[in-house]
Design a protein around this nucleic acid. Structure first.
Lengths: 327, 327
DNA sequence: CTGAAAGCGCTAACAT
DNA sequence: ATGTTAGCGCTTTCAG
């Protein structure tokens, strides 16, 4: 039993080339010794790549958890998924990228890359797909949310309820997905159409959002606003917190809504009206796209196409109601 | 400039062995070509392992997100983190493990492994640390929450408020961490001490928990219970949902509390009293432990010690209040 | 100080 | 049907 024979058997290429007897012998030995092929050595000689990297800014929001599960589920048992969390403060993104090229990953799926990383991605010599990164210079494969559609539904809902004057709270640091959400909502409340909007900024977490609202309320800038629209659910939760403290009734005095529709939006009080952004599908579409792209690249074709877009839907709940009559 | 010289330079072992001139030449070439060492080939020859696997049951709860971030932050740039999600239904755990041994991972950090996986872990020939898996047959390195302490605080809080008759909702499928939480709470409400408890089971998500409560309330089994304790925050959110539907006031008619203290527990209404289980620390301690263990193994020593335990703390909020006078 | 050579664990083409 | 050989991209002796 030579070393090459073993290779043939474990790779299922032993069809007419190894006698059934030998095959059994090999199989038993493999089982007894608990032998597994060293995938690194295998890839070294075959040149195939069986690991894909998922590059995320963080993982504390369930949004990214769902996204990762979506990716994982389509990659399944066929690939190793390496997780790179590019926590902004660390600035460790370049490091992470270096590791990935060193590991010869077969592909990268990337959400909200720090700008430095975005440039580095080009160098990667691997298939790259970008997620939820609309309207950047990126010409490569990507999958987007239908944010425009979602924003339109949300605005229509608000307009229906009589809201004309809103505040828009947007996460900072800004990013393309956030600025698109903002622009797509705000254009429905442009001054010309009899509406108006003020813009607020705060970090993308409960406390920062709550603090921003408290500060704005303290100087009376919320007066005359009948709705607050937030870039993310997490911000909206903070807004709800602050409004409760301030004894401002939602939605009777002011309506609140946002983008994401995390599961928790059903259970906060009042339950949050939100544009559902199906993260899991974003991840699974991204992974499927990556697989296609890298297959195409391996076949020598360059892959070109418009971004895939995953649909969004407005979930209407108790946090939005009719605008109060202006006093 | 030979191939070996390059190796010396890029590995910083060129001290007195390569002339400064050559070093510069090499460095420039490396920069120009964008060359990175192939870490797979390197590890093939050196025998070192620079990737660790994180094995999780799912990622949709922020709990696991924080855990993963904790792991990632201590592993930092030094290791690749491969993520294996062993979604229970898939039963894909054995597959996942096979991949990991094939990839020759240097270590595995594991939370709530399916039983099949747990057995397989022994075979792994890599350092393994278990997280939040108390009192199993596992004798190896692990890090635990101080669940006993947390349960005691929670029970004391409830007892203080006059609660004697509770319902305990526990996630299913059961697991060691869940059964320990349950046992540690329930012993404070044993029949002998003038208390009583009924046990409820439901899947670990909002809807399953809500359905369980509705079902139990429908047959009047909640009568006489002044508090519901849940194994996880997610269950408690479902309970809150169901109770609101049923027009049962929390905490005036019935108190609700749980384990985990996810960030969202501050924003549900009423805000949830919960035992804080710092997931991020669990992850970072786990990663540190793994690093120690594998260093020890490499040095030939076997690593033995008691499990590390990360402290817990009770966060008291509005969902628990004085037990109503029994009618 | 530098380069040639061996070999890590594998696969694929080539002999036997 | 089986075994032998040549490398995949590296690191590490060991001669020059």
């Amino acid at each position: 039993m030579s070393i090459a024979t073993v290779s043939l058997v474990v790779n299922g290429k032993a069809d007419g080339r190894v006698s059934p007897g030998q095959q059994e012998v090999v199989r038993r030995a493999v089982a007894d010794l608990g032998y597994r092929v060293d995938s690194r050595a295998r890839e070294l000689v075959t040149g195939q790549r069986s690991t894909v990297a998922l590059l995320l800014p963080e993982l504390s929001s369930p949004f990214f958890g769902y996204l990762a599960m979506g990716v994982s589920s389509v990659l399944g048992g066929g690939y190793d998924l390496v997780l790179a969390i590019a926590e902004r403060r660390g600035g460790g993104a370049p490091d992470q990228l270096d590791r990935l090229v060193g590991a010869r990953v077969g592909g990268v799926i990337c959400h909200a890359p720090p700008d430095a990383a975005l440039r580095g991605l080009g160098t990667l010599a691997a298939a790259v797909v970008l997620l939820d990164e609309p309207g950047t210079a990126w010409a490569g494969p990507s999958v987007l949310f239908d944010l425009g559609g979602g924003a339109d539904s949300l605005a229509a809902h608000l307009l229906d309820l009589g809201h004309r004057h809103i505040a828009y709270l947007t996460p900072e640091p800004d990013s393309p997905t956030f600025s698109l959400r903002r622009a797509a909502v705000l254009r429905h409340f442009a001054a010309g159409s009899g509406g108006s909007a003020i813009e607020l900024r705060a970090g993308n977490d409960f406390d920062a959002a709550a603090a921003a609202i408290r500060a704005v309320a303290a100087v009376g800038r919320l007066n005359g606003r009948s709705a607050i629209v937030c870039g993310t659910d997490d911000q909206a939760y903070g807004v709800l917190l602050a409004l409760a403290e301030l004894n401002i009734a939602v939605p009777d005095e002011i309506s609140v809504c946002a983008f994401n529709d995390l599961p928790h939006s059903r259970v906060v009080r009042p339950a949050l009206t939100s544009v559902a952004l199906p993260a899991r599908r974003l991840g699974s579409c991204g992974a499927e796209l990556l697989l296609e792209v890298s297959a195409a690249e391996r076949a020598g074709r360059r892959w070109t196409s418009h971004p895939s877009v995953v649909p969004t839907a407005l979930a209407v709940r108790a946090s939005t109601g009719a605008a109060p009559r202006r006093s």
